[in-house]
Design a protein around this nucleic acid. Structure first.
Lengths: 345, 345
DNA sequence: TTTAGCACTCCCGCCGCCAGAGTGCTAATT
DNA sequence: AATTAGCACTCTGGCGGCGGGAGTGCTAAA
C-alpha cells in the first residue's frame, strides 16, 4: 500500500464519514466545506483523483461525487478511525439487559436483540459451544411406558433434558442406580471427555460390564448426542432494521440476504473465522467472500467462558455503517456477555 | 347479498382463478377465451359491469381488466371454490415430517417450516397452550449454592425446567420430601387447577403449614408461573417466500409485514380469533382489521389435544393465493399435527 | 338477449430536453 | 511547486409529450 500523505488521509476520512452519514456520493465542493480545511474544490479534486488511482474511492458515474471502495473502508477502519468511547447511557442499557438469571438460550436471544436495538442493525449471536462445558450432574426419571426422562445439568445456567425411548421399563430405583454410577464416574468432566471415556468403556469392557452400566452408558451417550446438536446455531435479531437502508432496499438483495440468514451454514462459516481472532473483527463487503453480503459489513467479537472462546457475537449492516459507534458497542457487549456467562458467586 | 345468476358466478370464479394464476387484471377478451363459454367479450363486459356494481370486482384504472375485490374473494372462497383433494405425495410428505419423537417445541418448528415449504407461503404455528395440560410429575434437584433445579413433567413430550433462586440451601432428602408432597397432592391435575389449589392453600392454611410445605408450594408456583409465560407465542417460517410476490414486493409493505411478525401481539390477537371456529378459517385482506395485512390473507385451522383446542396453525400469503390448494393443506396439517400431539401408546 | 362497432380512456415505455451537480484539464496565480 | 479559477464536458434525474396497446362503455343492430 502506497503511503498517503496526511492531507489525503484526512480527506479520505472526511469523505468516508460524510458518506456514512449522508449516503450520497460526496463531491469536491461539499467535501471542501465539510472538511473545514481552507482548500478549494479544485485541489480536492486533484487529491480525489489520486485516491481513485489508489483504489480507495470511486465515482458511480463520470460526474458524481466519490464514495469509498471496500479498500477505502478498510483503510478507514484500520488506520483512520477515531473510535469514540461509548455513551454511559448505552453501557448502562447493555448492563441492565444482561441479567444473569436467564438461562443461556434466553440470554443469547436477549443479547442479540439488544445489539440490534442499540446499533439499529441486525444483531447476531452464536449459541455457546458446549464441548468444553463441564457436566455437573445426570439424572434419570421414569416416565410412562418405556420412556425415560434424562436430565443433564451442565452448569447453573443450563439444563437440558431429553426423553429416551428405551426397550423396556425401568424402576425408579434402577434408574437411580444408573445415574449414581454416571455421576460418580463422570461428574465434573467436560462433555467431550465424557464422551470419549464412554466410548472407551464401551469398547474395552462391554462384556464384563453388567447390564446396568451398559444401559447407563447408552442413555448418557444418547443425551450427549442431543446436547451437541444445538451447537453451531445462532440467533439473529432485528433483520427488519436492514430494510431502512437505501442500498439494501431492493427486494432481490433483501431476499438473498434473508435467505442466507435462514440457510445459516454460510453465515456460520463466516462467524467461525472470527473465533480465532481475539478482539473485534470486521468483514467489509466482498471481503466476506459471500456474494449476498457484498453490500454488507459484519462486525464481530468472540465471547468466552473461563477464558475459552465459546462463541461469537456481532452485527450485520450495510458497508456504510457507523463503524466508530458500532465497533465499541460490539466490543463492550462481548465483554459484558462473557462476564454474564462466567460462573461466579 | 344479491343472488348471482349462474353465469355471473361462473365468470367470477373464472376471473378469480385466472387472476390468482397470472396476477394480472383480467380483461373481457381474455376471460371470454379462458372461460370456455361461447360468449363474446361484449357480453362479458356487461356481466363485469354488474359484478363491479355489486362490489365483487374492480378495475385498477378505467381501461384495464378486472381483479377481484376482497368481497369477491370472499364469495369465491365461500361459495365457488372447488377444493381439490390433496396429492398423495403431499400428504405423505406431511406425515413423514410429523415425527412424534420430537418434543413439542421442535415439532411446532418443523410443522411451521413444513407448511411454508409445501405452500410456498409463510407458515405459522402457535405454541400449544398448556393451561389444560395435566401435571404429571414434579422433581427438585439441588444445584450448587442456593439454587434448586425444578423439573416439571407435563406429559410424555414436554418437560420444563427452571432454576430457582432460593433463600437457603436444601438437602436432597428435603427436596425429595417436597416433591413427594407435591406429587401426592397435585399429580394429574391441570396446571390451572394446581395453581388455584396452591393459592387457596397458601391463603387458608399458611400459618398451620409446616415450612416444608410452604416452601414446596412457593417453588411449584414459581415454576408454574414460568411455564405459562411461553404460551401466547408462535413460530413463523418461510417469511422469505412472501418476497416472491409482486404485490408484496415493495419495501415498505414488506417492512410493515415483517415488523408485525416481530411484534407478534397483533398477529396473536388475530390467531386467537381462530380458536373458536372449528375448521379452517380464512381472513382475506382487510378483513383481518390490521392494515399491515391488507394485502395478505391468513388461512388457519385450530389443532387440539384430547379434544381441546390448544393452538392454531396456518399460512400467511398474498390475497391472491391458491386457496383451493392451501385450504386442504392447512386442514390436513392441523389434523395430522393434532394426531401427532395426542398421547397414544 | 347477445353481439358488433366505435369512440374513448388510461397505462406504459420511449424519447428528447433541460437543469444541476460534479468532473478533468489547462492556464493563471501565489 | 502547489494551489486555484475558469471552462468545457459528462452524466443523472425529472418532466412532458407522444404513440401503441389494452380494455372499457355505449349504442345500435342482429
Amino acid at each position: 500500500m502506497v503511503e498517503l500523505n496526511e492531507r489525503a488521509q484526512f480527506l479520505l476520512k472526511a469523505l468516508t464519514e460524510r458518506y456514512i452519514r449522508e449516503g450520497q456520493p460526496v463531491g469536491s465542493r461539499t467535501l471542501a466545506r465539510d472538511a473545514g480545511l481552507t482548500l478549494s474544490p479544485a485541489t480536492i479534486r486533484n487529491v480525489m483523483a489520486d485516491l481513485e488511482d489508489l483504489g480507495l474511492v470511486s465515482s458511480p458515474h463520470t460526474s458524481s461525487g466519490r464514495i469509498p471502495t471496500v479498500l477505502g473502508y478498510r483503510v478507514f477502519v484500520d488506520t483512520l478511525l477515531s473510535v469514540r468511547p461509548l455513551d454511559d447511557a448505552v453501557v448502562e442499557k447493555l448492563k441492565e439487559n444482561l441479567d444473569i438469571r436467564h438461562d443461556s438460550k434466553n440470554l443469547v436471544e436477549s443479547v442479540s436483540s439488544l445489539l440490534s436495538d442499540v446499533t439499529r442493525l441486525a444483531g447476531i449471536v452464536t449459541l455457546p459451544k458446549r464441548e468444553n462445558a463441564a457436566l455437573q450432574r445426570v439424572e434419570f426419571l421414569p416416565l410412562s411406558g418405556k420412556k425415560v426422562l434424562a436430565i443433564l445439568v451442565i452448569n447453573d445456567k443450563e439444563v437440558r433434558n431429553s426423553i429416551l425411548h428405551t426397550e423396556r421399563e425401568y424402576s425408579p430405583a434402577e434408574l437411580q442406580q444408573y445415574s449414581n454410577f454416571l455421576n460418580e464416574h463422570f461428574a465434573g468432566k467436560t462433555l467431550n471427555a465424557v464422551r470419549s471415556m464412554l466410548l472407551r468403556e464401551l469398547r474395552e469392557t462391554r462384556e464384563h460390564l453388567n447390564r446396568m452400566m451398559a444401559t447407563a452408558l447408552d442413555m448418557a451417550d444418547q443425551v450427549l448426542g442431543e446436547a451437541e446438536q444445538g451447537s453451531g446455531d445462532y440467533v439473529l435479531a432485528g433483520q427488519t432494521n436492514l430494510m431502512e437502508f437505501q442500498e439494501l432496499c431492493n427486494v432481490t438483495t433483501l431476499k438473498q440476504l434473508f435467505e442466507a440468514f435462514n440457510e445459516k451454514s454460510h453465515i456460520l462459516h463466516l462467524l467461525d473465522q472470527c473465533v480465532e481472532n481475539q478482539g473485534v473483527q470486521i468483514f467489509i463487503g466482498e471481503e466476506s467472500g459471500y456474494q449476498m453480503l457484498d453490500e454488507c459489513s459484519l462486525v464481530t467479537a468472540p465471547y468466552s467462558v473461563n477464558g475459552k472462546v465459546v462463541g461469537v457475537l456481532g452485527v450485520i449492516g450495510p458497508t456504510r455503517m457507523a463503524y466508530e459507534r458500532v465497533i465499541p458497542i460490539v466490543d463492550v457487549t462481548a465483554r459484558l456477555f462473557s462476564a454474564a456467562l462466567n460462573p461466579r458467586d
